[in-house]
């Protein structure tokens, strides 16, 4: 479980607080989507959960961030990293090794995974992300999308309890993005891994995340079940956060039919809504 209480953070040399009075709880096995405009503090929040704040980025830290009972300030970053796997926004700087295989080995070696387990874990992670064929390749020969998948595989191989991903599908086409989201869903549902996902692709996010947190200017504006958050679409749009078009449609139909329609978050729901409305 992740518990964040009255958390505020200002980067050293930063003028304004990057995050202010954040209180957020993510239960074990939760799937939380974080949305918000650029500069809202999404990446800072991800860093705080992974313990990179305050261990790597110093600054003024108020309140508390607790991950599975470990207070991030009092714990060592290595103990936190055994729990939390992080996929960074800039895939280029996340990848350490010159070769795909070595990139997967890196974390497995460091965390002392037993030798006999290593080959199986590597194969499994590569297969899950759908890049088994890239195993022998050098990173330099891969496209941006392929690199992104390798970065995700290298974290999944570590089997963290909590996965934090900062815009992990930026370089991917819609189909590959959906594939990654489905994989996260599978890890979440079958292995109980808690997923925290920062994403601008709002339609996918709403379809997959069970909870949403909306950030703006360092504060959480709304949080809760995805559907509940989306029922405040007007407010979100005023902040510069888009909504899925099916949600916009259900809102418009509510107004026009002068009857409350359910908030739709995917195509199936929208189809049902329309079919119900047309006799």
């Amino acid at each position: 479980m992740i518990q964040i209480q009255d958390f505020s953070f200002t980067y050293k040399n930063g003028e304004n607080p990057a995050l202010q009075e954040i209180s957020l709880t993510v239960p074990d096995g939760g799937f939380l989507g974080i949305i918000g405009p650029a500069g809202a503090g999404k990446t800072t929040l991800a860093r705080a959960i992974a313990g990179i704040i305050p261990h790597h980025y110093p600054g003024d830290f108020y309140g508390s961030v607790t991950v599975n009972g470990l207070d991030t300030v009092d714990s060592k970053i290595v103990d936190l990293s055994r729990l939390v796997g992080m996929v960074f926004q800039d895939v280029e700087s996340q990848i350490i090794s010159p070769l795909v295989e070595d990139e997967l080995l890196y974390g497995l070696e460091n965390f002392g995974v037993p030798r006999e387990e290593i080959p199986g874990r590597m194969e499994e992670a590569l297969a899950k992300v759908g890049v088994s064929d890239l195993r022998e390749r050098s990173i330099a020969s891969l496209s941006g999308g392929q690199r992104q998948k390798v970065a995700i595989a290298s974290i999944i191989a570590l089997k963290p309890k909590i996965l934090v991903l900062d815009e992990p599908t930026g370089e991917l086409d819609p189909r590959s993005s959906r594939q990654i989201f489905s994989l996260l869903k599978e890890l979440n549902e079958e292995q109980g891994i808690t997923v925290i996902l920062i994403e601008q692709k709002i339609m996918l996010l709403c379809e997959f995340a069970r909870q949403l947190a909306v950030l703006s200017k360092g504060r959480i504006i709304r949080q809760g079940e995805t559907r509940d958050v989306l029922s405040h679409a007007d407010e979100l749009q005023a902040l510069g956060v888009n909504c899925p078009r099916v949600t916009t449609l259900s809102r418009m139909l509510s107004e026009k039919t002068r009857a409350e329609q359910p908030v739709c978050i995917n195509l199936d729901e929208a189809e049902n809504m329309v079919r119900r409305l047309i006799p």
């Binding site: 313990g51 970053i77 290595v78 055994r82 700087s93 965390f111």
Partner: peptide, 25 residues
């Protein structure tokens, strides 16, 4: 420069400090 710093973080959260002479697979 920005990247080097981020790479250091990426290594750190994957157990850079835990690595010993015996770690290699």
């Amino acid at each position: 420069v920005r990247r080097t710093d981020q790479t250091a973080v990426a290594a750190e959260v994957r157990g850079f400090r835990l690595r010993t002479r015996e770690s290699g697979y």
